[in-house]
């Protein structure tokens, strides 16, 4: 395990054909920190998250998570990562409970633990009453809540969240803040892409600002994220 951080990224680049999406990124995130990933649409935030969870391969550069290199040691890293992506990554023809049971089996959660964790999480995301409803009948916000439960089910060391507030109402946003605060306090490292510059989550320590595929700021998250974002983007 490196002394620098849970996540270490060095000279990371990603190209799709001739198009360069990420250029020479260098940053680290310490264990237990929460880093906000900021940037305009198309700046490469989702691509960076896909690279960090091993769903995509870098064109060049190094990614280390918990001391393991990606993609060479991806199988060791996968069990540590929880991903909340743009799409819910759920099965529409299964119920909320069946979805969580399925992923619990894939993550080798002991059968004795499964029911407890599943029911706790369904209650925490406010879906206990709809546990036996099919996901295809869920609204976007309900799917987002269930996705969050899926991402937290195996108690990951690293949470990667791509626009997690999308589709959530104000109660949902408060629920998400509560769950992420609890996860952060329990030592979970969080990287979260967001457009919500108007408020900095209390648990956010660090900001990473992307502009045109380059990292233009990597440092402490200021209270006024909008001003930090404007300043970093202007200096790029």
């Amino acid at each position: 395990m490196s002394r620098r951080g849970l996540i270490e990224v060095q000279r990371l680049s990603k190209h799709f054909g001739w198009r360069s999406v990420l250029r020479e990124l260098d940053f680290f995130v310490h264990r237990g920190e929460c880093a906000l990933l900021l940037g305009a649409n198309g700046s490469g935030k989702s691509t960076l998250l896909r690279l960090l969870c091993g769903l995509s391969r870098a064109t060049s550069g190094v990614i280390r998570i918990g001391g393991w290199s990606l993609p060479a040691e991806a199988s060791a890293v996968r069990a540590q990562i929880g991903l909340l992506a743009h799409r819910p990554l759920l099965y529409e023809n299964l119920t909320a409970r069946e979805n969580l049971d399925f992923f619990a089996a894939l993550y080798a959660i002991p059968p004795a633990e499964r029911a407890r964790r599943r029911d706790d999480l369904l209650a925490q995301v406010g879906l206990a009453a709809r546990a036996n409803s099919l996901v295809r009948g869920f609204s976007r916000g309900m799917q987002q809540r269930l996705s969050l439960a899926r991402a937290l089910l195996h108690q990951p060391d690293l949470l990667l969240l791509d626009e997690p507030y999308t589709g959530l109402d104000s109660a949902g946003c408060a629920m998400l803040d509560g769950l992420l605060t609890a996860a952060s306090r329990s030592g979970c490292t969080i990287i979260m892409s967001t457009h919500q510059l108007e408020r900095k989550p209390a648990y956010a320590d660090r900001a990473l600002i992307l502009a045109g595929g380059s990292l233009v700021y990597a440092g402490p998250a200021a209270n006024d994220l909008a001003a930090l974002y404007r300043q970093a983007s202007a200096s790029a």
Binding site: G54, L83, R87, L106, R150
Partner: peptide, 8 residues
């Protein structure tokens, strides 16, 4: 993606 992300 969820399947690929799982440690299987």
């Amino acid at each position: 993606d969820a399947l690929l992300l799982a440690p299987v």
